[in-house]
Simulated scan of single mutants.
Amino acid sequence: MFESAGSIVDKILRDEANDRLPEASRPDYENLLRNCNRRHQRQCPKDPTDMDFEVIIRNV
């Protein structure tokens, strides 16, 4: 959750992409970044709209 989209995409491409295939058969880097950022935004909690919210404190 605290890793940048670029580093996630780079790691996945490095581990999963087949360099022997033509470049056109591989997914577009910019599209992968956009998709990764969209999914990250959905996982982030929404900002409170008023002062009536609860703070959850976790002991790590």
Rank of each mutant, 00 (worst) to 15 (best):
M51K: 14
L33E: 01
D52F: 15
T49P: 00
E30I: 02
L33G: 03
T49W: 01
D47P: 01
P45L: 14
E54I: 14
E30W: 01
N37Q: 14
K46W: 06
V60T: 06
E54A: 07
R42A: 07
D50C: 08
K46T: 07
P45Q: 13
D47T: 06
R58F: 04
D50L: 04
P48K: 10
Q41R: 13
Q43A: 11
C36A: 12
Y29A: 00
I57E: 03
C44I: 10
I57R: 11
K46C: 06
D52W: 06
V60H: 14
V60W: 09
R58H: 09
K46Q: 04
S25A: 07
L32P: 00
M51H: 05
R42C: 02
E30F: 05
N37V: 14
F53C: 12
R39G: 04
L33S: 02
F53Y: 15
D52M: 12
D50V: 05
I56M: 11
D28M: 10
V55N: 06
Q41V: 10
E54P: 00
M51Q: 12
N59D: 07
Q43C: 09
N35C: 13
N37L: 15
K46V: 03
P48F: 06
N35D: 08
T49D: 03
Q43G: 05
P48I: 14
N37D: 07
H40T: 14
P27V: 02
I56E: 04
H40Y: 09
N59M: 12
K46P: 00
D50T: 10
C36N: 00
